[in-house]
Design a binder for these strands. Structure first.
Lengths: 150, 150
DNA sequence: CCAAGTAGTAAGAGTCTCTGACTAAATAGT
DNA sequence: ACTATTTAGTCAGAGACTCTTACTACTTGG
């Protein structure tokens, strides 16, 4: 975000435009495929690990409070996309796990994502697209305070 | 946004992480400099042209409804960052213009932005950083439905 | 001059997020 | 073991942002 003119667009604004276009395309395509969820729900669901994730970890990964994460997990649960299970190793904790339906949504989301990436790769050229991803990955290592590898 | 594992991070998620880090850094730095505004206010203010912008154009550029834009402009006006003027060429329209204080905030925001960009450039290397910006700019031409050059 | 389109407002609801305060379980240091 | 601290999650309430629907006023193109 910035306060500047549109003809001197900052990298923040450029990231914003690309990022939102990506998200909107996914939500629209998922909607067209019969899956109904919101941006915030999707962002959280995207961070659920294969064998389940703790609420606190999801919140941290998504960069929101655990209260906000709980709100979203409740909605995903109501929608039948995730279920909660007690963590066998910690009686305080739960594991949020994708249901079969949730995994179906995940599969569809991945397919849609791959389609968008393929389209973008065509716009930019393959080497440029791969370079873009690589640079964003490098950037993430520097800026993501929730990066699990930190 | 996606539903996938963190170790197979999509470009959407990577864009999200970088974009949010950028915005959060700016808001935090502006706050430290004594300017108080929110992400949404800043995103809108960033799109106000030198000689003023119409509410509808701001809304379109920011990708929100004109009602939402009006809500944000009201807040920016209350905070003394912008003022509204009648458009001399169209009695229906207004021009939203940065006040002197708003321009001061703009100047500060640009300085902060430049600092973040410099830091990122150091992380990535200059040619890689410039390539990143160029690729994002190309992407914008393809995906931004609100691009004025479309 | 009239029909259609455009700029902006008004009211109200929905979504997402936060802060502050809390319970219960785990853990570290006596 | 016992206690203090930390961690996982919940509850309640408020605030920020956005949307939809409906409207007024002005402009523009026949």
């Amino acid at each position: 975000m910035s306060i500047d003119q549109s003809d001197e667009m900052s990298i923040g604004t450029l990231l914003f435009i690309a990022q939102r276009a990506f998200e909107e395309d996914i939500v629209a395509a998922l909607h067209a495929s019969g899956f109904e969820f919101t941006l915030a729900q999707g962002r959280l669901a995207a961070r659920i690990a294969e064998n389940g994730s703790r609420l606190t970890d999801l919140a941290s990964a998504a960069g929101i409070t655990k209260q906000s994460a709980a709100y979203l997990v409740n909605q995903l649960e109501t929608a039948g996309l995730v279920s909660r299970h007690d963590d066998p190793h910690d009686a305080r904790a739960q594991l949020v796990v994708l249901t079969a339906y949730g995994k179906q949504a995940q599969k569809e989301a991945r397919k849609i994502e791959a389609g968008i990436e393929a389209r973008w790769q065509k716009f930019l050229g393959e080497p440029e697209f791969l370079a873009l991803k690589k640079q964003l990955l490098t950037l993430r290592e520097q800026v993501d305070r929730h990066d699990p590898t930190h």
